[in-house]
């Protein structure tokens, strides 16, 4: 089955982002085709050099870096969300594909399941 995780929350609003990543990793263990779309504040999860331990949390960018270890390599980011925050790809901690709106439409339409953070 095709699973898409639609991540739209910033990394440290409580444990929501970290818990969503835990769920993604389990989907990876289940041998499903898993992709992730970072959109809105979700793109902030990808910023480099986070130090979540200052807030008593795991660093979300480090957890995301585990995705390729679970063979989850289809990582997408919303072009508009990056532009609205004046972010460029070199500020992100992982290689991601930038998708415009048509690209996101196509991605979502291809899914069986869309999960949320």
């Amino acid at each position: 089955m095709r699973f898409l995780y639609l991540l739209r929350r910033p990394p440290y609003s409580g444990s929501l982002a970290a818990e969503a990543i835990d769920s993604i990793l389990v989907a990876g263990v289940f041998d499903q085709r898993v992709s992730v779309l970072f959109k809105d504040d979700g793109v902030l999860q990808l910023l480099k050099d986070q130090q979540g331990q200052l807030l008593g949390h795991r660093s979300v960018n480090k957890m995301l870096a585990a995705l390729p270890e679970y063979e989850i390599e289809e990582l997408f980011v919303c072009a508009r969300s990056l532009a609205e925050r004046a972010l460029s790809l070199d500020q992100l901690s992982l290689p991601v594909q930038v998708l415009d709106e048509v690209g996101q439409q196509t991605l979502i339409a291809a899914q069986n399941v869309v999960m949320n953070d």
């Binding site: 898409l4 639609l6 739209r8 979502i108 899914q111 069986n112 399941v113 869309v114 949320n116």
Partner: peptide
């Protein structure tokens, strides 16, 4: 419909 997409 499929998928069902939630937007919080």
């Amino acid at each position: 419909h499929q998928p069902i997409v939630s937007w919080h």
